[in-house]
Nucleic acid binder design. Structure first.
Lengths: 361, 361
DNA sequence: CTGAAAGCGCTAACAC
DNA sequence: GTGTTAGCGCTTTCAG
């Protein structure tokens, strides 16, 4: 069949030198050979179209330039972009990324990371923020380097000294500014819609929501609260479906909300559909604010007002940080980076209908 | 720091046996040892929380249970779902997926595949369908097993005997049925909007579009044709933006189209926004039909009429086929599988406005 | 400057 | 049943 794959020995033979010298060239130790030797080797490599076997190389060195990335589901556009950014950043540093969809199942996450580690991967990025980090911690103890996204591990870390770096946006604040915006528009009955609150970031966003309400002197109303059942998943794949149902149910209640704060843009966009199902227009009939600012938010009808996370920047530092750790270029205790959320005002929120009517009179 | 990672030798020592016996257990050759030995080994493994080093294992066997996946960009929801399905299928067969975003650049694709192969990956799925398969062919000659998606390599294969399996939908037919549907609604001026036609599948969809028009006795009109410039990318990341611009430009021309056929759903959904920018309603002012049936199509306002690809099923067989090849369980010449596209009628297409007006009189 | 030799952790004959 | 042995392809001392 296809000609045997060339090894370092083949190259050495052809170049009339030894494997070690070839290896030296491979590793950039050019000072240890004459230009002629180097030339011969390079010619030989080209001729055999030689590619070093990374497996063998890493069996020796114990490391591979691969980063593990564990996300709930790349089918969700948010995580798709996420993966893309991680990949870009990794690539620019000469790393590749091994992807795992773990659907937010800690056991699955652990299984993945374990298998990753058996391939020599020593750095993993955890995209979601499960309530418990026990499984990550176990991994870290076994020599894995981890960065969690969307959750500040500082506090956790102080308790356990587990050295988990973290990069996150200020979720509480994000929830707060979204809500304050709605409040400033005149809304008083604001619905909250989310998938299962089994994630630190979701809890925090809710927290921000409640804080804003409280600051405005408003009582939280259970009737304005919709939480997806975890038996249906977290809404990563079907986020929009969840949002649709949520909006429909909330809007059909007696004394319905005039505005909706969705835990993320997928839910928000789904809520558009839910409102539409009921013949309620956005933003005339109901205002909607999302979170994340996914690509689609801008193109949606109406363009979605949302809280933006500077994903690309965040992931750039996430990746650099992790690689610096792996390469021993960054030492010391775990880092905890925090980014600022930003409200992007577009067209999905407006003053409540009553105000509108009042104004018309 | 963390305790040294256990090797097979450590396990053997602790279990008072030899590495080979441990290896036998690892590889399921249970018949070659007494139950007691087995028991001792298992206890030892547990005690050391031993995980076999796959790197070393594969240096020997030359194979890794990892599939390479090369797509234009996971940030595009279509490719995100794509990657997810591949991952699911691979996972159920005990394989993992190494992901690469190559942005449709053959050089980048080749670089990826090469690096993949240096990690022992021997099977790669190519998601997009570049006009030239030269780079894939080169890889295949070097021992890689490839399956291309979205393009039938049968013809190509006959010329070159390069053994590239392929799985694809009938793109020509897909383009045809979408167009025929619009035609059946009464549309006569149908716009076509696409990114750069540098892809077999896009060319085929256009082909189907033209065929349907010709069958209806219609002349193609250059004014109804919009092709994104490749200098801006293929619209994988910014597909919706492209669609938006396309719709706007097409709709502003003198004697504008009454319907739009978009090369994929991202463009179609973008076209919604473009129409909206001009105050044209969908489907009252302009009908829009997409292609792919991404998750969002159903939630969009109005729900998008589109041509569905049975992605999950297609990728399931793609993955099985590839793994069967790799494991020597499937021999013989390359396979070329073809799936049937299906028109999903939702609400984004309606009879043209004039007909509507006529009906009103 | 260059090469010989040892070995990374595991597997697969092949003995015992 | 079980252990010994010889590598997989590369890196890395350490001599020449």
């Amino acid at each position: 069949m296809s000609s045997k794959i060339a090894t370092i020995e083949d190259v050495a033979l052809l170049a009339k030198t030894s494997p070690s010298t070839v290896s030296n060239l491979l590793n950039g130790r050019l000072d240890r050979m004459s230009p002629e030797t180097r030339d011969r080797i390079e010619r030989a490599m080209a001729q055999l179209s030689y590619t070093p076997n990374q497996l063998a190389r890493q069996l020796k060195t114990g490391q591979v330039p691969i980063l593990g990335l564990i996300v709930p589901s790349v089918a969700n556009p948010f995580w798709g972009s996420f993966a893309q950014f991680v990949e870009e950043a990794a690539c620019s540093r000469g790393y590749q990324v091994l992807l795992g969809n773990a659907g937010r199942d800690p056991a699955q996450e652990e299984r993945y990371a374990e298998s990753l580690s058996s391939y020599g991967v020593r750095g993993v990025i955890f995209g979601s923020s499960p309530l418990s980090l026990a499984h990550v911690q176990a991994l870290v103890r076994r020599g894995l380097r981890a960065v969690t996204f969307d959750r500040d591990t500082a506090q956790f870390d102080r308790q356990t000294e587990s050295e988990i770096d973290s990069v996150t946006i200020e979720n509480v604040k994000g929830g707060r500014i979204a809500t304050e915006y709605l409040l400033s528009l005149g809304h008083r009955r604001i619905g909250f819609l989310s998938g299962p609150l089994r994630t630190v970031s979701r809890l925090e966003r809710l927290n921000g929501f409640r804080t804003a309400l409280a600051n405005a002197g408003l009582e939280p109303d259970e009737d304005l609260f919709w939480e997806g059942s975890s038996s249906h998943g977290y809404g990563d794949v079907e986020g929009a479906e969840f949002g649709r149902r949520a909006a429909r149910e909330l809007l059909e209640r007696p004394n319905p909300p005039t505005a909706l704060f969705a835990i993320n843009d997928m839910y928000a966009l789904g809520a558009y559909a839910g409102a539409q199902d009921l013949g309620v227009r956005v933003p005339e009939g109901v205002s909607i604010v999302g979170f994340d600012d996914i690509t689609f938010a801008e193109v949606a009808q109406p363009p979605l007002t949302t809280v933006r996370q500077p994903l690309r920047e965040m992931l750039q530092v996430t990746v650099s940080m992790l690689i610096d750790r792996l390469e021993g270029r960054r030492l010391g205790p775990a880092d905890h980076l925090t980014f600022r959320p930003e409200l992007i005002v577009r067209a999905s929120a407006a003053p409540p209908a009553k105000a509108l009517e009042a104004a018309r009179r």
